[in-house]
Design a protein around this nucleic acid. Structure first.
Lengths: 312, 312
DNA sequence: TGTTGGCACTCATATACTTTAAGTGCTAAC
DNA sequence: GTTAGCACTTAAAGTATATGAGTGCCAACA
C-alpha cells in the first residue's frame, strides 16, 4: 500500500510520540499533541488501515498503537525530518569540543557530546586505514620504556613496557630501528600480524625485551572501543522505568561485540539506522542503532553509533 | 550499655543480613539463618534492648529491625570479622592483575578487581607525594608534541600538545631544558602552581608554544580520579530494586567531590569506614564508604574506596 | 464518498477492601 | 533467665470494582 499524506503524518506522530514516551499512542493524543486537523475517529480509521498493512501494532485491543519494525523502517527511510540544532545545543557543542590532543581525542569528545545531547550511550570504534608513520621509544628508566606509535593520519598512541631486565641505551636505539624498519607503512589494522612477524624474525637478537615491547603494543592497539554514557541520564529515560529493563540494556551494551558484528553486516551508506528486530540478534531486538561512518581527510575511518531503546 | 556476647551476636546478624537483603530483619530470620541457640522470643527481648540503647531501629512496629548509625559503627569497630578470600577469589585476583604498565595502571587494575569482587563501585584517587623526575618531549610531527612526565616513583604520564605553529627541533630541545630546569623535583601535587610560574617567567622567550604545552600538561594531571563500576552489577543489588534509588546513587557518584571532601576530613588510620549519616553531607546519608590508604614504597600515596548502600 | 459524532465494548490501571503472613510485645509457665 | 503462646500491628499480597483511555463501527452529514 502506498501511504497518502495523512497516513504519513499519522505514522510520523505515532513514531515520534512513542519514542519520547515509550507508551502506546492513541488517536486522541495524536490529534491534540500534534495538531492534526482530523477528528479522532478519522485518525482511528487510518490507524486501523496502517495496522492492517503492518506499519503499526496494537499491544491489546483497547490500547493505543505502537510502531512495528516496518513502521520504524518507513519512518526512518521516508518521514524523518532533519532536526535543526537549537542555539543552546550549538553553544554546548562549541564549548565542549576543544582542539587539544590528537584526532582520536577529538572523536572521543564528539562521542561524549553526542551521548549527552541525545541521552543515549555512544560507542566509538576506530576502523583505521591509516598507516603507521613511525615508532619512537623513550627510555623512562632502566626497566621502563614508553613506546610511541605515530600514524600518518596524526593519531598518536603510546604505551608503557615494563621490562624484566635493565636495558642499555644502545639496545633501545637498535630496537627502535628494527621496529621502524619492519612496521612503518603497515596499516594500523594489520599491526598485530606485523608485530608477530617481527617477533618471529628478530626474537633471537633481542630475546625477551622484544616480546615484552610487542605485548605492550598489542594490548594498546587492541583497546579501540570507547563507550560514553552517563548512567543517570540513561536511567531517566522512560523506557527504563523498570530496573530489569535497564539491567538488560546494560548487559547488552557490555556484550560489546554484538553491536560490532551487527554493524559489520550493514556498511553501505553514511548514516545507518538499524532497527534491532531486523537483525537476528535476539538481545538487540528491543533497541535500534544509529550509526555514522566518518572518514577523515587522512583516510582515517571512524564509526560512531548511538543506541536507543524502542519497545518496552 | 556494654553489650554482652549474645547481644553482639544478634547485632552482628542483623547488620550482616540487612547488608545482603536490604530488608528489615526479624527475630525468626536471625534464629534460622544464623543458627543462634536462643528462641525467637529471647532474641526479640534482646533486640528490644538493643533498640532502646540505640543500636537498632524499627521502621514501624510490626517490622523487623534495621541497624542504626550507632549500630553500624559498633559493628565496624568491634564485630566485623576478617573474611578470608575464597580460592576462587584468589584465582580471580591472580589472573586479573598483570604487571604491565606503570604503577598507576596497576592500581587501576586493582580498583577494578575490588569493584568486581564486592559488586560496588570503586573510586581511585591519587594523592601523590611523588616528585617529578624528568620531562621528555617527543616531536611527533611539525605541530604535534608528545610530552612525557616521569616521576621518581615510576609513574609515567603523557599528553599531546597540538600547536598552532610549526616548531623547529632546536626549540623543542630548549623547551625540554626549560621545563626540566624549572619542574624537576616538584611534587606532582604542586605541578599546577609550578607550571604557572614557568609560564610567567619564560613566556617572553617562547610565546604561545609554552602556553600550549603547559595547558596540555595541566589538563592531563588534573584528571586523577578513576571510577570503576559496572552498571549491571550495581543494578542487581537489592537496594536498587527501585530505579529512583539507582538514579540517586548514580547522581551521588557523579558529584565526585562529595566523596573527596568527605574523605579529606577523615584521614587517620589505614582502613577507614565512613557511615554516610555520620557526615553532614545529605546526599551521602544512605551510603557508606570504605576507604583504604595505600602508600607505595616510593612514597607514592593512593586511596581507594568503595561505596555501598545502607538504608533503602 | 470521505468525514465525523456517538455509542457500545475492551482492558489496563487505579481504588478500595480483605486477607495473609511476618513481625512484635507481653505474660505465664517452665 | 528462657521460652511457648497469644493478642496485636502492619506491609504486602490478593480480590473485586470503578475508571478512563482507548478501540471499532454505524449512522448522519457535507
Amino acid at each position: 500500500m502506498k501511504l497518502d499524506d495523512r497516513k504519513k503524518k499519522i505514522l510520523s506522530s505515532v513514531v515520534e510520540d512513542y519514542i519520547t514516551t515509550a507508551e502506546p499512542v492513541g488517536s486522541k493524543t495524536i490529534m491534540d499533541k500534534y495538531h492534526l486537523e482530523y477528528s479522532s475517529a478519522t485518525i482511528r480509521n487510518e490507524m486501523k488501515l496502517l495496522e492492517e498493512s503492518g506499519y503499526l501494532e496494537q499491544p491489546h485491543i483497547s490500547a493505543g498503537r505502537v510502531p512495528s519494525t516496518k513502521g520504524y523502517r518507513y519512518y526512518v527511510d521516508n518521514l524523518m525530518k532533519n532536526n535543526n540544532l537549537s542555539m543552546l545545543d550549538i553553544n554546548y557543542i562549541d564549548n565542549s569540543i576543544t582542539s587539544y590532543g590528537d584526532t582520536e581525542k577529538l572523536f572521543e569528545q564528539a562521542a561524549e557530546v553526542v551521548s549527552k545531547l541525545l541521552s543515549r550511550p555512544t560507542l566509538l570504534t576506530f576502523k583505521s586505514e591509516d598507516l603507521l608513520e613511525s615508532v619512537k621509544i623513550v627510555k623512562v628508566s632502566e626497566k621502563l620504556l614508553l613506546i610511541v606509535l605515530i600514524s600518518q593520519g596524526g593519531t598518536v598512541k603510546d604505551c608503557i613496557a615494563k621490562l624484566t631486565d635493565n636495558i642499555p641505551d644502545e639496545t633501545v636505539n637498535e630496537l627502535t630501528n628494527v621496529l621502524n624498519e619492519n612496521l612503518v607503512g603497515t596499516p594500523l589494522e594489520n599491526l598485530n600480524i606485523a608485530l608477530n612477524k617481527v617477533i618471529e624474525k628478530e626474537l633471537k637478537s633481542f630475546s625477551f625485551v622484544l616480546g615484552q615491547i610487542c605485548d605492550s603494543i598489542k594490548r594498546e592497539i587492541s583497546s579501540t572501543k570507547k563507550l560514553s554514557s552517563s548512567v543517570e541520564t540513561i536511567l531517566s529515560l522512560p523506557e527504563f522505568a523498570d530496573v530489569d529493563k535497564a539491567k538488560n540494556f546494560a548487559n547488552m551494551l557490555a556484550t560489546k561485540n554484538i553491536i560490532d558484528t551487527t554493524l559489520e553486516k550493514t556498511q553501505e551508506g553514511e548514516l545507518g539506522i538499524i532497527i534491532g528486530s531486523e537483525s537476528q540478534e535476539l538481545l538487540l531486538k528491543d533497541y535500534s542503532i544509529i550509526s555514522l561512518n566518518i572518514e577523515t581527510e587522512d583516510k582515517h575511518l571512524r564509526k560512531n553509533f548511538c543506541n536507543k531503546s524502542k519497545k518496552n
